[in-house]
């Protein structure tokens, strides 16, 4: 069915879509590839890790919510630059961003994830899961690191990552969309462009299905994050009140 769809969409349009999405991605990355290469082996020392671990649960939650809130702004900017997104009604723009921004961030995270030593960039240096011990969310953190390893194994190029994040953002099955058909059309074209990009590199035929097979784990992580946030809010209402406004807006149901 997708091959019939591909025929309808001229390859000229596919290239135009790919270029727009890749350009939008590269322009809205928090870290350039060079920065990440330079930082890749800047690891937290054991003392710095212990300092992170000795932080209070509230302080660590506040710190992480701030990082997520900053990163969300780049995802909003990414979405705005994707052809067709701003033509959607604003209700749907908000729904797609609220439902999809964390999934986009989880995919973007692999650019700052080093599978060789299982570390991720956090506030300027790389560290392992133990950095986040004081959050009290070991299951969530280990799921995120597992996802990072799995996605890194696919060795996505910048182009593939850009198109995959755009396709995930433009998910027509998000609840309460008013024009899901319009979103479906956009996503279809982006998936065709992504398949085209994968084939261009002669990488494994089933690379796209491997990428799509990671979506359930991402959804589980997003739901787990919401559960942890709700639980934290019950225990520490004042701290949760002071979470960054954008973080609260996106994740408060």
């Amino acid at each position: 069915e997708s091959s019939q769809l591909a025929a309808e969409i001229s390859s000229l349009e596919i290239d135009r879509i790919a270029q727009n999405v890749v350009k939008s991605h590269l322009e809205t990355c928090q870290y350039t590839t060079e920065e990440l290469k330079r930082l890749a082996w800047t690891l937290y020392s054991p003392e710095e890790i212990r300092a992170l671990q000795s932080k209070s649960c509230e302080a660590m939650w506040q710190q992480c919510s701030l990082q997520i809130s900053n990163a969300i702004q780049y995802v909003v900017e990414f979405a705005k630059r994707i052809d067709g997104f701003m033509e959607l009604c604003q209700n749907d723009q908000i729904i797609l961003l609220k439902a999809g921004c964390l999934e986009v961030l989880l995919i973007r995270m692999i650019r700052a994830f080093n599978p060789l030593n299982n570390t991720v960039l956090f506030e300027g240096k790389y560290g392992g899961v133990q950095m986040f011990k004081s959050l009290g969310c070991d299951d969530l953190i280990s799921a995120i690191f597992e996802l990072g390893r799995n996605l890194c194994r696919l060795q996505l190029s910048d182009e593939e990552l850009a198109l995959f994040t755009a396709a995930v953002l433009l998910s027509p099955d998000r609840p309460w969309l008013t024009e899901s058909k319009k979103v479906q059309k956009l996503q279809d074209k982006i998936y065709v462009a992504l398949q085209h990009e994968i084939q261009k590199k002669h990488s494994a035929e089933d690379k796209l299905s491997k990428m799509v097979s990671k979506l359930p784990l991402m959804k589980t992580i997003c739901n787990l994050h919401l559960d942890k946030m709700e639980f934290f809010r019950l225990l520490h209402p004042e701290t949760a009140m002071n979470f960054p406004p954008l973080y609260k807006e996106v994740f408060n149901s």
């Binding site: 809205t28 909003v76 900017e77 604003q90 908000i94 954008l246 807006e249």
Partner: peptide, 19 residues
Amino acid sequence: TERHKILHRLLQEGSPSDI
């Protein structure tokens, strides 16, 4: 709109300061 005023504002105008 009230419930999502920051998202609305980000969608409307400027991008993050350092982009």
